[in-house]
Amino acid sequence: MSAHAKTISLTVNGTRVEASVPPRQHLGDFLRERELLTGTHLGCEHGVCGACTILIDGEPARSCITFAVACDGRSVTTVEGLDDDPVATELREAFSAEHGLQCGFCTPGMLVAARDVVLRRPDADNPAIRTAMSGNLCRCTGYVGIVNAIRRVIDARNTNAG
């Protein structure tokens, strides 16, 4: 443990957590190695691939370039914390139906980012979905299934609302 360790207090998936963290530990490592929440995947670890995307106070963020120590007092939600989230539930079904995943490495980050698109951009056409999802890389699907899955959820919600 670092000589510079700091005590932080935060909420992870609704549970209060107090921990001593080395300031250099990024949030992704904190979630995986201390909280054993291995649903958050670490790909590039410099903010490019999007696999580690989680929610901080409800907003998507890269857990690899956010340090755990900076999250004192914040509320963090990982893909595990979205089990009962209605939009995430619809997205999981749509990703399955539309072949929105193959190996699954990018999927946790895709779901967190896609949920943000569904909630924030209900008017998004397919090019807008692609632009909004451009910060999340997938090496299996070619993205068509991912875009179709998000399209399906947005359309269903708009139909139900209308």
Binding site: G50, E59, A61, R62, I65, T66, R120, S134, G135
Partner: peptide, 9 residues
């Protein structure tokens, strides 16, 4: 600028 997850921070 970059991506929404980056713009949030």
């Amino acid at each position: 600028i970059a991506y929404r997850a980056v713009r949030n921070r």
